[in-house]
């Protein structure tokens, strides 16, 4: 089961968020709020700024009273700390960690040489998805965002934001790719 995915740029900014099965197992908790697992794949990602994304995303996670923006920061903090911890502890060349697992989910991590961080959450039984993240980077992000002159425009060369500039293709591509994974909705 794949839950959600984040992409962070070098500046700790969450530049992409997508979720699939969020709140699925927590169905009961959400039932009372009327709007249980409304498929919020949010293909309406044109908005741009993180404020708009926040408002569209808060619904399915009412039980957790944390905005997406806030959560993004925490996720970034966690992967950043763990990455440093692993680099310090490991001998020689060590490019961060592969994944970590808790009782309820597993977080997969892939970092590009340019400092882009790809984070994917799945259920804990899934084996490593780092290769899948790598594929998302090489086949989708590079092709549809980096090579897209519109996606780069207006970002001062500092960060590429697929949400803002004509990168609808990227969101659709990621959606299609993740849905094609065998573990997408098997628990």
């Amino acid at each position: 089961m794949i839950y959600n995915m984040y992409i962070f740029d070098r500046h700790c900014q969450c530049i992409y968020y997508h979720d699939w099965h969020r709140g699925h197992t927590a169905k009961n908790a959400f039932d009372q709020h009327g709007d249980p697992l409304a498929s919020h794949a949010s293909a309406s990602g044109g908005g741009g700024g993180s404020t708009t994304t926040t408002t569209t995303m808060t619904d399915p996670r009412q039980g957790m009273n944390m905005s997406l923006e806030e959560e993004g920061k925490l996720v970034y903090g966690v992967v950043y700390s763990l990455r440093n911890l692993v680099k310090k502890l490991g001998k020689g060349q060590q490019d961060g960690f592969i994944a970590y697992r808790t009782s309820h989910y597993k977080l997969h991590y892939y970092e590009t040489l340019t400092g882009l961080k790809f984070v994917l959450n799945s259920d804990p039984g899934v084996e490593s998805l780092q290769q899948a993240l790598r594929q998302i980077y090489t086949q989708l992000y590079v092709e549809l965002v980096i090579k897209n002159p519109l996606a780069n425009a207006g970002s001062n060369g500092a960060s590429v934001n697929p949400e803002t500039m004509g990168a609808e293709g990227f969101r659709n591509g990621v959606d299609r790719f993740v849905r094609s994974l065998t573990m997408f909705d098997t628990l």
């Binding site: 839950y3 699925h24 996720v75 060590q94 994944a99 970590y100 697992r101 309820h104 989910y105």
Partner: peptide
């Protein structure tokens, strides 16, 4: 930051 409620903390961290 668990996507599903009720998770424990980190149990296993995997590196190369």
């Amino acid at each position: 930051i668990s996507p599903v409620p009720g998770s424990s903390g980190i149990e296993m961290l995997e590196t190369d």
